[in-house]
Computed example of a mutant assay.
Amino acid sequence: MTKLPYRLSAAEMDILDERRGQRTREGFFHTHDDRHTGFQLSQAADEYLRAAVTCARHPEINPCNLRASGSWPWSARWWKPCAPRRMLVKAAALLIAEIERMDRAARGNGGAP
């Protein structure tokens, strides 16, 4: 890893930690991500982003009561709403996963672009 000329912010560290957790906690390694060639990772990120914005605009809403919309790409058991900041972290990590998948596809060793 390239040494950065600055320290990562708490937000950056949290996003990278979430991405690492997607692999280690959930077992979602690149072989899993590469099967999602229909931009499902981006769709999931969008769902978390929209939920975070809804909660930020309406603080009376309990995030735990939010349901995923019809564009959530997976089973409802994978929808895990939480505090708005945490949902933004999840969204950013999912976008990293999508970009990594696209990069592998472009190199010819992963999911289709």
Rank of each mutant, 00 (worst) to 15 (best):
A56F: 13
I96V: 14
A105N: 04
R101I: 03
D103F: 13
D46T: 10
C64F: 14
F39W: 15
M87V: 05
L8G: 07
A93S: 07
S71Y: 14
E98H: 02
D34F: 09
G21V: 01
R19P: 00
K90G: 00
K80C: 02
H58N: 15
D14S: 15
N62Y: 08
F39D: 14
G38I: 01
A10C: 03
T54W: 15
M13E: 11
E47I: 05
R57N: 14
A105E: 10
D14H: 14
T24P: 00
R7P: 02
P84G: 06
K90L: 00
T54M: 15
A68V: 03
A52G: 04
W74T: 03
M13G: 03
R50T: 02
P59I: 08
A10L: 12
C64Y: 14
A91Y: 07
R107I: 02
K90W: 05
G38V: 00
V89Q: 03
R107Y: 09
A105Q: 09
M1E: 11
E100R: 09
P84T: 02
L95V: 01
M13K: 11
E60T: 10
Q22V: 00
E18W: 03
D34W: 06
M13I: 14
D33K: 05
L88M: 08
A93Y: 03
L8I: 09
P113W: 14
F39L: 08
L41T: 01
S75N: 13
R86T: 05
R19F: 05
V53W: 11
R101N: 03
L94V: 01
H36A: 10
R23V: 12
